[in-house]
Design a binder for these strands. Structure first.
Lengths: 325, 325
DNA sequence: TTTAGTCATGCATTTATTGCATGGCTTGCA
DNA sequence: TGCAAGCCATGCAATAAATGCATGACTAAA
């Protein structure tokens, strides 16, 4: 049975005339007649009484009519619902990241992506607990990408046949502190003050933290005391200006404050922490929008410009989704 | 969209393997693959993830699955229900008649029909009020045939382009009465007794009654008094034997009682009432089973035997219903 | 690296669908 | 009563779709 036969039936039951119903269905009258006969053959009963004019439903036809409507409605609704979901899902790029990157790096970066990819909505999730949680979410397709800081000297060591990664950028984190009355830093690395050095952190709660690692390795002889933690990275700068302690903050973030003297460096520039911003994906997830972005990022990494993509690399999970649109 | 695509989808979702599902659906694997792709094209989204083995439903596929089941169930149920109705209707021959014929003529006559027609069920309705009701029921397709007595001298005068009729048989109604002590009839027609002649009738309530007509025309100089009416024709004989009065009864009915002297004739044999048993149909109703029986009856009327019916007369309301079985 | 299995595609054949021309039938009108 | 108009069905040829066979691209396991 074909859905178009059911729709033909509905048209004929409404119009009572083969020629007019055929016209409405955009087929010739003989073709229409055969389709109605095909439906009647499938059903196993005549559905229309042709002797009388206009054609009227038989008892079988009257019994079939509400069911025909339901079949047609159900098929159309199913199609529409599935399409709606696909469109919704197609247009959502889902990222997970640590909150500081969510607030600093991602907004301008996502903005820059918009000339390369089609996505109406970006979803940025920051609520995962541990590093394992972030990667699990990639694996079970809850998110498409995970973006994080990664110390070049302390790679995450993920299995790169399962999780592929690309470096998006790097960032210089400069240790800053409020100046004393004379404009000098309240402490200087790697000098060892008599008291523990108060320091400010973004909330990382089980997440990878190049800053912590840096502190724990480069300044292992010093004692630090965490006096402030917040999931809102911008507040670290403000708190540092207020004199609460030392913080590693992206240099671009505080350039003006350093120039104005509101903050001062707490170490030599050579001691700045340069970290990579790395994006991860799960290799098994081959959805078209994920593949598309990955290609863009790989080209960016290799210094390529985005070229004409008429010859797209062949991928599994065919037929290619573009053919649906 | 084709129903077989939906069934293919359901098979694949159950089995997770194109080759095995194709086998189960009795098509080759390439054909099966194309059908799944055709459904995906119609839906507008991939329904299966082929990268992983076994093939798994995508999110779109999971959304479509319950709907696919419902579409398939609805289509199959609709077909079955309509077919059940058609089979039920096809196997029911619906007659209306007066109660005396229902109890006397029809049972053996229907028995004799069974070698000519296929009908699991005969429906005999006797509850119509007037002659007009019987014919209305024909016209609105509540019954297929109406069978009644018809006096050859007093035809029903129906419009025979609307209501076609055939004579099935004739019947001799003989006036009988119980004998007196000497074995003579208690009254004799057309003698006029001093008192009204008690007579017995089948309940005809607005129905055509050749017997009443006969009494009213042939014996218009006599006075009759109806002393018994019953819808059960057989009781007339019993009541006549008990001496309640005169009754016109089918001769075949009382042959034994006449021979045994339990009943005697109340008139000369020339005065027996010979009536036709006539069957009517509505010409507009062209349902196959009605046409079929009519042909059988016409052949019987013309003395033909039922011949091979490979060349059936062409009828409207095609395709011929036989093609459905 | 090789093998086995999965699903997709090119190609030729088969089957189905379609539109055109036309026919059988019914109804309405002159 | 005959004719015309309109309805739906069917024969035929052309077109389109569906199918199976052969084979290829790819992945996973040995």
């Amino acid at each position: 049975m074909e859905l178009k036969w059911v729709k033909d039936f509905l048209a004929l039951s409404a119009m009572g005339n083969f020629r007019i119903a055929a016209q409405q269905r955009s087929v010739s009258q003989p073709a229409f007649s055969r389709r109605i006969q095909a439906l009647e053959a499938w059903i196993g009963a005549p559905l229309f009484d042709r002797v009388r004019q206009p054609s009227q439903l038989t008892q079988a036809g009257r019994l079939f009519l509400p069911r025909a409507r339901e079949i047609a409605d159900l098929a159309n609704t199913a199609k529409q619902d599935v399409r709606a979901l696909v469109l919704e899902d197609k247009e959502r790029m889902r990222f997970s990241t640590i909150s500081s990157l969510a607030q600093t790096f991602l907004p301008p970066w996502l903005k820059s992506l918009q000339s390369f990819i089609v996505a109406d909505q970006f979803v940025v999730k920051t609520e995962y607990g541990t590093i394992a949680d972030y990667f699990s979410a990639l694996e079970d397709n809850s998110v498409d990408f995970f973006i994080c800081y990664e110390d070049p000297n302390n790679r995450l060591q993920m299995n790169d046949s399962v999780f592929q990664s690309l470096k998006l950028a790097n960032e210089t984190l400069v240790p800053v502190i409020s100046p004393d009355d004379q404009g000098a830093p309240r402490c200087w690395l790697p000098d060892r003050p008599s008291k523990p050095i108060p320091c400010l952190h973004t909330l990382t709660k089980g997440s990878p933290s190049p800053v912590r690692y840096h502190m724990e390795t480069k300044y292992s002889h010093l004692t630090f005391k965490s006096v402030y933690e917040s999931s809102i990275a911008l507040t670290l700068k403000v708190m540092a200006i207020e004199g609460f302690g030392l913080a590693w903050v992206p240099i671009a973030f505080v350039a003006d404050d350093l120039a104005a003297g509101r903050l001062v460096r707490a170490a030599e520039p050579a001691d700045d922490l340069v970290v990579d911003i790395v994006i991860y994906r799960c290799a098994k997830i081959t959805e078209p929008r994920v593949e598309k972005l990955w290609k863009v990022l790989m080209r960016q990494q290799n210094g390529q410009t985005v070229c004409d993509q008429n010859k797209v690399e062949r991928m599994r999970c065919r037929p290619a989704s573009d053919s649906y649109l």
